[in-house]
Design a protein around this nucleic acid. Sequence first.
RNA 1: GGUCAGUUCGUCUAGGGGUUAGGACACAAGAUUUUCAUUCUUGUAACACGGGUUCGAUUCCCGUACUGACUACCA
Length: 507
Amino acid sequence: MERKVRVRFAPSPTGALHLGGVRTALFNYLFARHYGGDFLLRIEDTDQNRYVPGAEEYIIESLKWCGLTVDEGVGTGGEYGPYRQSERKEIYKQYALQLVESGNAYYSFDTAEELDALRKECEGRGETFIYNARSRSGLKNSLNMTPEELKALLDNGAPYVIRFKMPENEVLELHDIIRGEVHFNSSLLDDKVLYKSDGMPTYHLANIVDDHLMKISHVIRGEEWLPSLPLHVLLYRAFGWEDTMPQFAHLPLILKPVGNGKLSKRDGNKMGFPVFPMEFTDPETGEKWHGYKEDGYFPEAFINMLALLGWNPGTEQEIFSLEELSRLFSLEHVNKSGARFNPDKAKWFNHKYLIAKPDAELATLVLEKLNAQGMTFERAKVERICSLMKERYNFVEELFQDCMFFFSAPQEYNEKDSKKYWKEDTPALMKELLELLKSIDDYSFANTEKVISEWINGKQLGFGKVMNPFRVAIIGSAKGPHMFDVIEIIGKEETLRRMEKALSTLK
RNA sequence: GGUCAGUUCGUCUAGGGGUUAGGACACAAGAUUUUCAUUCUUGUAACACGGGUUCGAUUCCCGUACUGACUACCA
């Protein structure tokens, strides 16, 4: 009997959502869409110390920008709410107590300092301290107390945590969709804290309780969670929820472009590429981080790039819409190994999407930028410029900057280019060309090409001899599209004006 | 240190007991071009190592090395 697919993205609001987080969200989203299931957003804000104001809004905005529509959860609502763990506090307490009653958990009164000291001591002897069957009999917990002692402590309001009672020497054979069978021995695991002394659950408890209550069918999360898989499975067992336990899939990590380790938010500002979908300012430090959005990436390109980081369609196709990805996505094609992030390829994806954009759409973006500078230009011509120029660029901003010469006459002439192409005999030649240009009325590409070509051929000159200085005069440098295109777009009046200016400026 | 994962061109990856080990990014060269780009063509470049199993292993098994994650009253 197949269950309805329900997956969740469950970030903790401790800052901006980084690349890895967005990819986890994306894979969950694609999985849900592929099977016609639900994609939930749950906010795991059980750590009050690490809570960053604005982070939750940032997460919601980012998912929205990426086009990952949330079906249920924070910001959307749904029948399994609330979806913010801090608002579910009471629920967790009840379940923690249930585990104590069933003998799967116990009260522990050891302070963090005492345990730290114990850890240090063991380390000194070259051993590892584990709070489990081997050591718990010597520690301050309810397993070593009479019911009266426990009650007294609790009544006095002594701070306590609730720990999971890890079974001894049990080999767990667990299944991960991506990795296959994974084995663990429970004796090496410790009695994890489930319920903290501040009255909040830890991730482990809240996660299992919520996934169960929210009827999650598949848990798709980062590889860093693989070590806690046995604990989680044991929790399902302790609660008696094994029958409806979700299936697990642990995603490979995203690694730094160079050097060792997983990608961190530090890498972005250091190496000049964003690690966050959108700009983020740390409210505490005021530190500002670049975002893909503000850096000029299209969300479709960003998502496409992310999808291929750790997943492949099994074919050689590389460009996919979100719909195609949803159709094609499967966990079977997710890699096991970590993927080094490649900023160059991210740009290439944007380039592909830029080229594929309709000229009308690009023109709108260019016009916006132009208007922002208090300038304007004929829309049809901007569209023409876009179609002429877009193949050269990765970003709209680059295109815009490079096309400024269409919108306004050059303020200066590139020194290298004018030196190279503006020779002694050039002014005379350009004056002649100017006269010719004055005599032409039809500035269409076809016509200017015909008239000017005839003139050049008649003079027995190479095209470059004329076109290069002409280009420098009109554009200010030796780059750009065909000159016949340029003068058609800027028109006769502007062409003549720029020629005259060049003739009077350039020596 | 311990536990658990992972390892195919520089990078992302396809593949999988017999292949000229395929593609993409990057890089290089050539062609086209009025410039700069684009485009096109071509090229350089990989199965971590050692043992098995097998007629045959990059592919399966075992070790080693390396890399990573985890090892908190953080998620």
